[in-house]
Amino acid sequence: MAVTLAEEIMLLSLDDESGAAKERQSAAWAVSGGILLDLVLAGRVTVDDGRIRVTDPTPTEVPLLDERLRQIETWCGKRSRDPKVTEWLTKDHTKAVKATVASLCERGLVREEQRRVLGLFPVSRYPEADGSVERELRARLRAVLAEGPTHRARTTGLLALIHGAKLHHLAFPDVPRKECAALLEELTAGQWAAEGVRRAIRDMQAAMVLVTTATVVAATS
């Protein structure tokens, strides 16, 4: 079973040794967005003009995606009009992270460890158990950065999510943030996928900019 976009983003976020999540809040938005984008690429969901619609409820046979597909269908069915992407990301991001981490544990890519903060408060950490998938992922991303645009919709879509959530340092820790942002802006432009997919990603990028900016403002106010 192929690794999903959400799982790839989660692998980039989790520290290999400690298992702690880096840039936790922004990564959570991107994880939820990754599930949504995989559903768009699978032809189950459309995102247009910043709003979500389920166009095909048929299961994808990927449990992580199918659970979210069922939830989106139920949620959309209770509303008078198609909901906004920002509404779904806000509702789903915390749950999406939990589901994605559970999926990574089931695959044997990370393992769960229970620890205590200050010797009192129990927390779960997810250090690396099998690094082969993340190594391949980082090599693929570095290749795109070095060689230029790819016509693989999933890879370019992943870069767009990373760029939209400002997770440049997680994916490319050795590249200065401004330089990386400019490169990703260039790489995710152009005719790399069907117009409907590119439009969906632009809408999702805009949604993540809104929610991540709001998170930063709330944290500093």
Rank of each mutant, 00 (worst) to 15 (best):
V216T: 05
A181R: 11
V209S: 08
T215S: 14
A2P: 14
P59S: 06
K178D: 15
D15E: 13
G19K: 09
T220Q: 09
L159P: 01
T188V: 14
L120T: 00
E61R: 10
D56H: 14
L11S: 08
E106F: 13
Q191V: 08
K22S: 08
L187R: 04
H168I: 02
R24K: 09
D203H: 04
L141R: 03
L5W: 02
R135P: 00
L5S: 10
G108E: 01
V47M: 04
C180K: 07
G164C: 07
T188E: 06
G148D: 11
A206R: 06
E87G: 14
V62Q: 11
T60K: 10
E136W: 06
E134T: 15
G131Q: 15
L69P: 02
K78G: 12
A200H: 06
A182N: 09
L64K: 06
D82C: 13
T4R: 10
V101R: 05
L36V: 02
L158W: 09
T74Y: 09
E61M: 08
S124L: 15
G34V: 01
L183I: 03
D203W: 03
V217D: 00
P63N: 07
H93E: 04
V197N: 07
V3K: 07
K22Y: 15
E128F: 00
A143I: 02
E134M: 14
G131F: 10
G164K: 01
R53M: 10
E23M: 08
F172A: 07
A153F: 05
L120V: 13
P57G: 06
D82L: 03
A218H: 12
T90Y: 04
L137P: 01
H168C: 03
A21W: 02
A99M: 07
L161K: 02
M1N: 06
S80R: 15
A160T: 01
Q205G: 00
C76R: 15
P63T: 03
L120I: 14
V3L: 15
I35T: 08
P57Q: 11
D66E: 14
G148H: 13
R24F: 10
L184W: 12
E8S: 13
V40D: 11
R140E: 15
T156D: 08
R115I: 12
V197T: 12
W75C: 10
V123E: 09
T150C: 10
L158R: 07
G196S: 14
I35M: 12
L118V: 14
E195S: 12
R68P: 00
P83H: 11
A182S: 07
T100A: 04
A207C: 04
Q71E: 13
G108L: 08
D49W: 06
L184R: 03
E7P: 02
V110S: 10
A153Y: 01
V85D: 04
D38I: 00
T86W: 02
L109W: 15
R51S: 04
G119S: 11
L64R: 10
A102R: 06
R199K: 13
A194H: 04
I162R: 03
R111T: 08
K98A: 04
V40T: 05
V54R: 10
W192H: 04
A171V: 01
H163C: 00
I52T: 10
V45S: 14
V217P: 05
V217H: 02
R199E: 13
L187Q: 04
V97M: 04
T155L: 15
I9M: 07
L64G: 04
S132M: 09
R44C: 11
E128S: 09
